[in-house]
Design a protein around this nucleic acid. Sequence first.
RNA 1: GCAUCCGUAGCUCAAUUGGAUAGAGCAUCUGACUACGGAUCAGAAGGUUCCAGGUUCAACUCCUGGCGGAUGCGCCA
Length: 575
Amino acid sequence: MPGTDVSALLVRPCPDPKFGDYQCNALMSLAKERRMNPRQLAADVLARLDVSEWCEKAELAGAGFINFRLRTSALAQALQSAARAAHPIVQTAKPPRTIVIDFSSPNVAKPMHVGHIRSTILGDCLARTLRLLGHRVITDNHIGDWGTQFGMLLVGWKTVLDRAALATDALGELERVYRLVSPQCDEERPEFNPRVRDRARLELVKLQQGDAENLGIWREMIALSQVQFDTIYARLGVQFDHALGESFYNPRLKAVVEELRARGIARDSEGAVCVFSDGSLPPKDDPFLIHKDGAWAPNPCLIQKSDGGFNYATTDLATLAHRLETWRPDEIIYVTDGRQQLHFRQLFATFRRWHPEAKVKLAHVWFGSILGEDGRPFKTRAGETVKLADLLDEAEERAFQLVTRLRPELSEAKRREIARVVGIGAVKYADLLPNRQSDYLFSWDRMLALEGNTAPYLLYAYTRTQSLARKARESGVSAGDVSELKLGALEEIALAKHLLNFGLVLEAVGEEYRPNFLCNYLYELAGLLSRFWEGCPVLKSADPERSSRLRLSELTGAVLKQGLEVLGLETTDQM
RNA sequence: GCAUCCGUAGCUCAAUUGGAUAGAGCAUCUGACUACGGAUCAGAAGGUUCCAGGUUCAACUCCUGGCGGAUGCGCCA
């Protein structure tokens, strides 16, 4: 049945509706494999295919495409049955998989900034998508709560902390303290002070050895940061199943290094412990090799520093092992920026050698950076990184101005509520719309525009479905049973066909980790809905049509709402 | 220097991973409707997909070589 098992037939929606509704092009690559004439093969298959029950037409075209045109009756029937699912037009995955998603990962004692927004929003969207598709999703926030920065923070806490400032703006004060101490520990900076650096190292060692005072301060810094994280995640509507920070893995790090060394995967080098190439991969694909001066040179992955300390790679290996033992996932997804590609290639390769039997799929879902309107990395006018809390404030404020301009008659409380949904939604939508791998330009004007592929446009389309339904109820018109869907006008048919593809788009988002597919789908859906309303009067029409059209409008509203929810956007019934 | 990613309409971005005549929005120009919620809809114009080769039925997509940009390359995460 179209819309349900089309992927089994290797067909997909036609790129251009004038060719048909669905097309099969898989036969052409099959023909190439078998060195056959593609058009002949397609003709043979077509001759044996009987799809007359669903299709008014199935024809051979071009170099070997088979195009299918659905019967309108079959379309209505397919849509009706798909709409009866627990989540309309969503088919749950046949074998549900266990998928761990690692995203957001803010640092303790530092304000969350724009650098965290893409990971947070993208990771949350993938979690929502895969859950809706029926998978068992486990979200884990790998918080940066351990490492060298705590040596410096402890020095600052003990020497220059302003208690009053800590009480009013904890993160601001911690940031100030860190900025005061950090340059003094950096040999390359003019502020460098070897006594401060040595003190920082000492405080870090004491912390790592379990010194009671330092542990107490460390815990307080975590608690203060957690308040900030909770506030931001609540505003964004993001939830985690676990938040196992780096410190959680600290007790395991030594054993990881010992095991890798004992197994010959890692060895000592210049006082550090490193993983080198084992020659099992072609040099071009080997993350432990680098092309230098015309030859392949070692590009090792450090898992223990020469001072005995552990680093990012060590923690990530321990984390991977823990996740595998604890949750037995089929897949682990890491959502980080593109600069960490080499790190993850080395991490995954090291892990494969460590656990060659593991079947888990490891995916590094990376994204580009956010640029300001000048094309440079996104900063405040003063050149500072933009804090996430400030960004969300501004989004809500700008949306409030917009709502106030358009709907001055609404109460302030109502306008504030709409502005919250629209403002936060606009930030999220602007982040999910571009292909994640490209850098994108941050623009308030574009993300809050009323026309075009924006959150306000989609949210507005949804509110129209709700107000139409409200008006229908008030005038006593029934929405009609699903079984009464009658598709006549071209606009109705086009809308119905697009609705039917919702599940396929969700699957593509989950497979390719690309929410922009869903953004574009919803934008097209909203456009088709507007055209449908333009061409097909609903409440003004007579009854067999009226209830069917009302039903089609409501179904579109339900899909819009579900789609926006998967993207992490709230909806509102009034705008 | 080497590696990864990117280069598409004036601007911002798509293109279901090798499929049919490369699509949207903004900006520009034109049109519809005293509106079942106009924050609407329809139309026009805009392209040598950075350049040069190659692979095949088919290339924005893959390969080779350039040009331009971002990022990363041994003790940060």
